[in-house]
Design a protein around this nucleic acid. Structure first.
Lengths: 227, 227
DNA sequence: ATTAAGAGTACGAACATTTGTTCGGCAAAT
DNA sequence: ATTTGCCGAACAAATGTTCGTACTCTTAAT
């Protein structure tokens, strides 16, 4: 049963990645982005975060870059390409991260959840603007990328959920509804980009400690009863 | 000092409400909405939730209602009026709720936070579509309503924060960063509208219990040390 | 009973903007 | 001489909204 689920997981994940890599055409332009193009993506992410994807026009983007609208198309194929890059880059970060977490088999479920919380904080602090767009604007992608993205998201959530269920089965976690636990953790970590990160001067380490304490010490069994 | 802050809070809240009531013109049409208009708001909220405010056109809305676009303007003044109604209605619910929580002075900070979590769940389950729009699309309002909304939001968060700080000062809560606690709770409760509510058949009571357990037992001191 | 008034609801046509994008050309660098 | 980056002009489509009209009810005066 466990073997079957694992195989199914691998297969599905592989199919997702094939679709994803074809969609993004990573093999064509591996990682050689001209500085100008990188700047466009960066400014676009900022605008998408501030005003939303649909409310940000290519003319807004051009103006923010000191360019004319038509000049953008010398660097990028279209508006949606920017959104796709942002969304799939972040998705890749999360999937790589959870793969690493799964790859430490001796670790307890509690340590794995702790590592995942740390992962979310790291991704958020790496590029918080990009993560916001990833979180809030992915639905504006068109098919087939939208389906590919949804599949990757479902995959990540299912793997996270499995770790939680293992923790419950092992008695490390309270026997609460696993979905409630999953989505509470996922969204508890989302607030990082809602309060503007400029003002709040909390060290990443302090933030991580507080978050882990807040979430885990409600999750871990501290009572000594064995019933 | 406490008195001063209270007076300032009242004053500011009053100013917010004046602006808010003028902006919404509640006194003109108190609560007499024709059924057709109510249906328009309902369908619009659903579309705004699904596609986002900017990506939803008035033609989309008309088609979903079986109407021609121009017919909409027999009932509503414009697209933004719908967004404003949704946002300020929910804001009013939250502000009324936190006022009630503040009005029970004998209650402990823990009981107050528990009541606020319950409030968020209640508002979410009352009309989850509307709450999603309130949470995600408010920024598309134009001035001066945008500023009024931001002020109300800040007001709510500050009052929530004060309860948390009181709990910490009384030793009921762990001395973590109050902002971390606040935004973790606020966003932990947000997940309700991200997992589609149709499939997940969790009773509201079970949901509330699990959420409170998860959040509070990480927040409450359970150690017996008095240091 | 007939008429008039008025509110509520819906429509077609059209409007001025804004949207994402394309194309041909121009200048500088390689 | 080819690539690279940028531009002006333009396009087709979509946008929110307005206007004049017309149909259907209810209500009230004739």
């Amino acid at each position: 049963m466990s073997k079957y689920r694992f195989a199914r997981g691998l297969c599905q994940q592989s199919a997702i990645f094939v679709l994803y890599r074809i969609a993004m055409k990573r093999e064509e332009a591996p990682h050689t982005m001209t500085p100008r193009k990188e700047e466009i993506f960066k400014v676009a992410a900022r605008l998408f975060q501030e005003k939303g994807y649909s409310a940000t026009s290519m003319r807004d983007l051009a103006r923010a870059l000191g360019l004319k609208p038509s000049s953008l198309y010398s660097h990028i194929g279209g508006k949606e390409e920017i959104l796709r890059k942002i969304c799939f880059d972040n998705a890749e970060r999360f999937l790589d991260g959870i793969s690493q977490v799964e790859a430490m088999p001796q670790a307890s479920a509690a340590a794995q959840v702790r590592a995942l919380i740390k992962l979310h904080i790291e991704v958020a602090l790496h590029d918080i603007t990009s993560l916001t767009v990833f979180n809030d604007e992915w639905r504006h992608m068109s098919e087939p990328w939208l389906s590919a993205f949804r599949a990757m998201r479902r995959d990540y959530e299912r793997r996270f959920l499995r770790i939680i269920e293992q923790g419950i089965a092992q008695g490390a976690f309270k026997p609460l509804n696993p979905h409630t636990i999953l989505y509470t953790i996922l969204n508890a970590v989302r607030w990082l980009h809602y309060s503007h990160p400029k003002k709040r001067a909390i060290s990443p380490k302090q933030l991580e400690d507080d978050l882990v304490t807040l979430l885990m010490e409600g999750l871990l069994h501290t009572t000594t009863s064995t019933s």
